[in-house]
Amino acid sequence: MTVNPNARKLLFILFFNISFIIVAAQSLSQVLQVANQQYNAGNYSMALKEYQRYLFFDSNAAPEVYDHIGSCFQNLNQFDKAAEYYDKAFFTYSSNELKSKALFNKVECMVYMRDFGLALAEILSISDTITGDVYYKKEFLLGICYFGMDDFDNAKISFVNCIASCDQIKRQKIEKIFNRKRNFYSPNPKTASTLSMCFPGLGQFYSGDIRNGLNSVLLTSGLALLGVRIALNQTVYDAFFTVMPWIQRYYQGGYIRTETIATQKRASNRSKAYEETLNLIAESKN
């Protein structure tokens, strides 16, 4: 039987193309398999490379791929990229259960990035009708977002709601933490700065920084004494022009730095209150 040479050529090209597609498809599934293996083994940077290679050839990947890429980025502390991929997973998943999981992961990344406003907007998009564990998770993340935005009244409500209503003792303890105003508003940086303007060192003492307070008092009063001495031994003008620029420098430096000291101290008090709240919530969980 003789075969037309053109038909043979055509058959060969067809066979070559089909075999190439099959080989390519196999290698793509192998890439995904390797990526999943690396992911399950906790080698996130390796898994990420493989997943990205897979995405290069298959742009319409399954939502799990996006989810795993998000998780890899999250474990590598690249939260902005992790949020981006969780977002893709959210829009690709069809089940509500997985959608909500992807959304919570995205919000977690935003919290780590300290983008509390955006995280709050995302978390508020979850339905109010939810109950059970999803509800507790939502309230917990809401509490963190409100806390980060200095909205402590709403943070209190959300953190209290994280704990089951049968555990009244822990709920009351959280309320007590939030009702103690000095945990959140003390020391006031403006008050500290004003106190240091009235008398050098006073703002530092008010903020609980004794060393810097004593330092400020000694430095400015030492310079003032030097000024008095020069004024007595020579003239008032001499004292004014030699010592005044130094006094002004350290007096001004004192009240500017006091504001920073008070701000840090207040942030530290808030952080302590947050950690206490977190411990109480953790104790209520299994």
Binding site: E97, G132, D133, V134, E275, A282
Partner: peptide, 24 residues
């Protein structure tokens, strides 16, 4: 129901991973 009976139980570890978010 799909929103309420999902396996997203919040564990101690889930809560404690947010430690240090407001650390100074």
């Amino acid at each position: 129901l799909s929103f309420n009976f999902v396996s997203q139980a919040q564990s101690k570890a889930d809560v404690m991973k947010f430690r240090g978010v407001f650390e100074v």
